[in-house]
Structure formats: C-alpha cells, structure tokens
Amino acid sequence: MDSLLAGLWAAIELVVTLDPDLVEITLRSLQVTVTAVVIAAFIGLPLGAWLTLTRFRLRRVTVAVLNALMGLPPVVVGLVLYVLLSRAGPFGVLDLLFTPTAMVIAQIVIVTPIVASLCHQATRELWFLYHDLLISMNTTKWQRIRTLLWDGRRALLTAVLTGFGRAIGEVGAIMIVGGNIDHVTRVLTTAIALEVGKGDFALALGLGLVLIALAVLINLAIHSLSRTEKEGTW
C-alpha cells in the first residue's frame, strides 16, 4: 500500500514539475507508438476489408493465421527482428538496431494483425448488410473497400485504439530491438522495467500511472473527437 501511495505521489510530482526526463520519454513513447499505429492502420484496415471482399483458395487459412497473429508474442517478434537487423543479419547494413525506427518496425509487426483482424470482423458484418446493395450499384472493389471502411469507421476506430493500447504498453520487443538507451530509445515501458530492476518501485509505479493516464486520455480524446457516443450515430 505504501508503494502504491508513494507511486501516486511520484507520478503527481513528475507531472506537476514537468520532469524533463519524463517529458522526453513520454514524447518518445508517443512518437514511436503513434507512428507505428498510423502505419499499421494504413496496412491493416485495407487488408482487413480486402479479405472481407475477396474469395481465394486459402482465404480461410489466411484469416485463421491473421487471427492467431493477434496474439503474437512480442518477445519473439523482438528476437526475430533483432536477428534480421543485427550486423550479421540480412538488414544489418541499414544500421537500424537500437534506434526508434527499429522500435516502430517491431510495433508495426505486432499491431498490424490486430488492426487487420478486427477490421476484417467489423467489415464482414457490414458486408453481409451491404452486399446486395453495393453489387446492385455496380461498384468497383476499391469503392466497396472505401465504403466499408468509411461506414464502419466507429468500429474500426476501436480496432485502431486496441492496437494503440497494445503498442503503448508493449515492452518485450522494443526492449530487445531498442536497447533501452537513455535519451535515444528509452520509452515509458522500458523505463518502468529498468526502475523495477533497480528496485525503485515508487518511480516505476509513478511512470506506470503516467502511462495509464496517457492511454486513457488519448482514448477519451479520440472518442470525443469522433463523437462515438453521440445519440443517433452508428
């Protein structure tokens, strides 16, 4: 209990004093996560809608694999990326290991299947509803994808926010490919892991509370801007 109170106090102190280290790692957390989620959304949303609309031989298997990838272990993602990006690996020449770019790549790999799979589920329900109408109107596949994404935007926002939640709280992969280097690749989650390792639970809890507050604030802001709970909206 004392640790929790101390953590809460530490969090308040860090936020109120605008601790420079806290501001820096918070901004880096946001930069890495938002970049990864935006890219994952650009890949995952059309992919999910395309899977809804397209019939091909291995479609069921593809959807099943995509669903399974939602639970992709971050540590394994980090490990594989580490091997690929390390100097001896095929992409070592790019010199990306222990950079924020490597962390973004890791998060894209983790978040894209989540966004695509949830998008596929949401657009599948909508396609069941719209199927006859859109075929009757002679729409092209690209128009159908755009229509499903636009009309399903509120469900898809939830899909993207789920991806954001997974990414902002992720530690395993970005610790491995980022290295938790101070002023370079340290983010909120890796800083928490470090403080726990040092035995400074109060500071770790404080950072954790900041992390939770950040996630809640971003969710609230996006829901508020997109008016998801407004009466009479889909």
């Binding site: 909508l126 509803l129 719209y130 006859d132 109408l133 009757s136 002679n138 229509t147 009309d151 399903g152 889909w234």
Partner: peptide, 15 residues
Amino acid sequence: YARQSFVFQTPIVMR
C-alpha cells in the same frame, strides 16, 4: 446493370 436500380424488400440503409 449500370443503368438499373433495385429497391430491396427490406430496405438496406447505409451507416
């Protein structure tokens, strides 16, 4: 088909 329209028995309304 581009010059035809169809009104379904259960109206399909888009979101």
